[in-house]
Simulated scan of single mutants.
Amino acid sequence: MSETVSFGYRDVDADEKAGMVRSVFSSVAAKYDLMNDAMSGGAHRLWKDQFVRRVKPQAGEAILDMAGGTGDIAFRLARHGAQVTVADINPDMLGVGQERATKRGIDGLAWSEQNAEQLTFADRRFDAYTIAFGIRNVTHIDKALAEAHRVLRFGGRFFCLEFSSTTWPGFSEVYDAYSHHAVPQLGKMLAGDAESYRYLIESIRRFPPMPEFERMIRAAGFAQTKVEPILGGLVAIHSGWKI
């Protein structure tokens, strides 16, 4: 029997998921940042600022920003003088990022179409690896984590910003109701695409809880792992070191 993996609330053939995810992000690429603002009330900007503060990018160091197509994280990293490679499986998302970089006069970023599970970069290439709101869309998360570990130098750091499950009583029920009902409607109004945003919300529900994901990061070889919940775990910053 062929392997099945989650695609939102559905189980699909593992070989089909990457193409399905690529299709989702091709559909939402042009309106992706507008929808992020609408869905989070602009809070995603604060989460990303906090995330980059935790990364502590340094001038001249090489950072791989995986699933970073629109450039939101890369632009923040580059302000500190880091040499950033923006990687994404979806060329449409990369195109949006490159266009945004041009409009903002941001030079020096490298753009690369990459599958997080099969990176083409050499071993020990980067000082840091970042991924924001992307790892839950990977078909085999363990393979993506192993690749992150492989391309990091010894002493390199891994940082992941991802949605999770809030532990605040009452808030989780309110957020569930909002996300399942309001977000697809926002997607329909602002991006003309309710189904892609329904998938994005469902993919959050299928993502491993914070303790389980931390165990997966350790299993990939990372040490000194840490989880920093935001809003009780609605969003979390995961980190680890290659030593």
Rank of each mutant, 00 (worst) to 15 (best):
172 S>H: 14
221 G>R: 04
28 V>S: 01
128 A>I: 08
182 A>R: 13
14 A>P: 07
173 E>D: 13
123 D>L: 04
76 R>W: 02
24 V>N: 02
238 H>K: 02
14 A>L: 07
34 L>E: 12
106 I>E: 06
85 T>V: 13
23 S>I: 09
121 F>D: 02
236 A>P: 08
165 S>V: 08
71 G>R: 04
178 Y>I: 10
62 A>T: 08
215 R>E: 07
210 M>E: 12
53 R>M: 05
181 H>D: 11
179 S>R: 07
179 S>T: 15
230 I>N: 00
141 I>M: 12
180 H>W: 09
62 A>P: 12
176 D>V: 13
170 G>E: 05
59 A>F: 10
164 S>Q: 00
14 A>G: 09
118 Q>P: 07
182 A>Y: 06
136 R>C: 06
107 D>R: 14
161 L>I: 10
227 V>T: 09
86 V>N: 00
52 V>G: 06
239 S>I: 05
120 T>Y: 03
73 I>L: 01
114 Q>V: 10
151 V>W: 07
175 Y>C: 08
229 P>V: 05
174 V>N: 11
194 A>S: 15
217 I>E: 04
160 C>H: 00
74 A>K: 04
182 A>Q: 11
88 D>R: 04
126 F>Q: 02
112 S>V: 13
224 Q>C: 13
25 F>G: 03
109 L>P: 10
8 G>I: 09
185 Q>G: 08
113 E>N: 14
204 I>C: 07
142 D>Y: 03
100 R>C: 07
238 H>E: 01
124 R>I: 04
174 V>P: 06
122 A>W: 06
202 E>S: 07
161 L>P: 09
195 E>I: 13
2 S>Q: 11
240 G>H: 06
224 Q>E: 15
239 S>W: 04
177 A>M: 14
195 E>L: 14
126 F>G: 00
186 L>N: 01
63 I>C: 03
